[in-house]
Design a protein around this nucleic acid. Structure first.
Lengths: 227, 227
DNA sequence: GTGCACATTAAGAAATTGTTAAACCATTCA
DNA sequence: TGAATGGTTTAACAATTTCTTAATGTGCAC
């Protein structure tokens, strides 16, 4: 059974067979798929229907993947879009200069559907441009994203994922109020819908663990972290 | 019981009370402690008896911590020395520009001995400018990548390749969480994809051999090595 | 008092990891 | 070549943890 992946993926490759093959595999996973046979078409399409992720073959006649990638990166509307390069196996990771061009990942041919899908999933899970501090302090709590722990007055405790992300979000900007919508988008992602009370429950658990008045309720708006 | 910390630490602070307090705590842990009340003296001392780590108060009359730090960083003999800033709570992490000046870490006042000590330990554990150590120790396991051997409490045991690489990866950065994706790429390579449970099985075997709680599960994220 | 927004709790759903055994694979050795 | 061996991966299922929901309570504003 496939999950609900409503993300849109743009496939760019000059070989129709590969295009078909990948399209088949992606559709099976409920992704919305668009295809283009060259860089120029790809850019046109991407501008029109902004995709969440672009799978870009490196070797293409006329405009190659690197070139296409650079052009895409200059389009403001596509700032949030992930770009994954498809490379021939022989090409070396460090050689391809794909990352300089603005790629987020690369997968080498021949394509293994399972690998490709897991990579796509991993990318879509994280949000673009999320340059969060790896470690910061707020009052007497300290958050270390590398270790995935929060220290309360120097004592380490580990919160489960949602609690950690939620606290992390609030504590990163002490005093600033986050609306429920903001919290939802940041912690749960753009296309996840959970009940109204779900956030409350997580807040409750955090308060239980790090102190009742660490997180303040701003009625009608949302929550904020204060110290 | 304190371990054998023969590292030398230079304490720099203009407040005698704080100096005493920290000296007491560090000595209790068997560190060799030197103190200085201002930046100038600190530099003199550091040149003479090269310390492993310098604890440097930011706010000091005459020459402040930042300035002192910059000067220290220009002394070749102190290239390997870690510098940790002591900041007042209110000062913001990003504002202090301490990292630009060449600091390796910072701890905010009021000083909590436990936190401070754990930071110091963490720093001293890794050697300055280390990429992938060929040989390193983490808790009571010791890994020698050249000989492909791991010693547990001094007893050598040979793990098969995958287990060795996996343990090696985690133990090289104690405390830091590695996601399954990261582990896959590091141990199996970028192009290989193995089933979801494969990593678990290897983790299990490692735990069997070097102790159940050597590797900690961080649900929803990955694994980390701790001691 | 009524309505609205949030708080609390406990239960069951969902997701993730643990465990085991067996299949698979490559290499060595007779 | 063909067992034998040790290592790796898979698959099935168990165990566990985390998440979400739903029901109910509380307090404040109008």
């Amino acid at each position: 059974m496939s999950e609900n992946n409503n993300a849109t993926i743009l496939l760019v490759d000059d070989e129709p067979d590969i295009l078909e093959f990948m399209k088949y595999n992606l559709k099976k996973e409920d992704y919305h798929v668009m295809t283009a046979a060259n860089g120029k078409d790809a850019i046109q399409l991407a501008k029109k229907h902004v995709p969440d992720l672009i799978l870009l073959d490196i070797m293409m006649p006329e405009m190659d993947g690197i070139e296409t990638c650079k052009l895409i990166r200059e389009i403001p509307a596509l700032k949030e879009t992930f770009i994954v390069f498809l490379t021939a196996r022989s090409e070396d990771y460090s050689q391809i200069a794909g990352f300089d061009a603005g790629a987020d990942d690369y997968v080498s041919k021949p394509i293994k559907p399972k690998l490709l899908l897991s990579r796509i999933k991993a990318l879509l899970r994280r949000k673009k441009g999320d340059t969060v501090e790896r470690r910061f302090t707020a009052g007497d709590i300290e958050i270390d994203r590398d270790q995935y722990v929060v220290l309360v007055k120097g004592v380490s405790m580990d919160l489960p994922r949602k609690e950690f992300e939620l606290l992390s979000l609030l504590a990163a900007k002490p005093g600033r109020v986050f609306t429920r919508d903001e919290i939802l988008r940041a912690v749960w992602g753009n296309d996840v819908f959970v009940g109204d009370r779900t956030i409350d429950v997580h807040i409750r658990k955090i308060r239980e663990k790090i102190g009742e008045d660490s997180i303040k309720t701003v009625k009608g708006i949302g929550y904020k972290f204060e110290f």
